[in-house]
Design a protein around this nucleic acid. Structure first.
Length: 262
DNA sequence: ATGGTTGTTTAACAA
């Protein structure tokens, strides 16, 4: 079974790119973030045509928004509000066999990594804390897959330069510590790093502001696929589909994928 | 040290 997670940065603008990703990666489940589309405007018919008749959608006008698309039957696994905001940053699916798929879009956090002066960074840290508490309550033997744009690159080789980014939001020690706590709360296993050794650089996002992609390759690994300890041994392969970042009018994120033997 | 780009929605905001 293949799971793909992709911050598409507008599902309406990039519907053709979605079809190309579907053709190339053949996902059983395609999880999207930053759909930027209210549910009534979601391109349901186009996505059905692309092979995903099953669609769980939670969007809002202009910002955020998440979706889980599937070719096989799934049922609604609910969606949660975080930090008492209805800002469409989570949706879940029951994908059968007592296995649950959670799709997250964590707040980016603004520019200044100081919660006292930057409300967006405070929001990000609060979100991480709530998600940690939520993870701690998941039964240890339960089968969960958690994907999304977590907006944090935790390891030194998850960024193009640890030294130059250590004070930049997405790679600061306080965020990395919070992400580690979130992971530890359930014993989540990082599927990408289970496949790609920590001494190898791997990224999933490249800023639009750096026009030199892919030459200088100044990326960050902001997107993640985590699995419950009970599924850790079932991850057979994983990676980043970098090609999509080089297409016409790309999202600033590339799709990431994992094969899980369930 | 600064500014660099893109998307939604139309001047500003978020990323």
């Amino acid at each position: 079974m293949r799971i793909v997670s992709w911050n598409i940065n507008s599902v309406r603008l990039r519907i053709d790119a979605l079809k190309k990703v579907a053709d190339a990666l053949q996902p059983d489940f395609l999880c999207l973030q930053e759909t930027k589309t209210q549910d009534s405007e979601f391109p349901t018919a186009d996505i059905t045509e692309a092979g995903f008749a099953q669609q769980l959608v939670r969007g809002m006008k202009g910002y955020n928004g998440v979706a889980i698309l599937s070719s096989a039957e799934i049922s609604d696994g609910g969606s949660r509000n975080w930090c008492a905001r209805e800002d469409c940053r989570h949706i879940a699916a029951d994908i059968g066999g007592k296995t649950y798929l959670h799709n997250f879009y964590v707040p980016a956090g603004g520019d200044e990594p100081n919660p006292k002066v930057n409300e967006k960074f405070a929001h990000k840290l609060s979100f991480l804390k709530e998600a940690t508490d939520w993870s701690a309550k998941l039964p240890k033997q339960s089968r969960n897959i958690m994907v999304g744009d977590l907006n944090i690159a935790p390891l030194e080789n998850d960024v193009w330069s640890h030294k130059q980014l250590v004070k930049v939001v997405s790679h600061t020690p306080v965020e990395v510590k919070a992400l580690d706590a979130w992971r530890a709360a359930h014993g989540w296993v990082d599927a990408i790093r289970a496949v790609v050794p920590e001494n190898e650089k791997i990224y999933s996002w490249w800023s639009y502001r750096n026009r030199s992609w892919p030459g200088s390759d100044k990326g960050r690994r902001l997107d993640h696929i985590w699995v419950s300890p009970a599924l850790a041994a079932k991850v057979t392969d994983a990676g980043v589909y970098r090609d999509a970042r080089g297409w016409e009018k790309p999202s600033d994120h590339a799709p990431i994928w994992a094969d899980i033997d369930i």
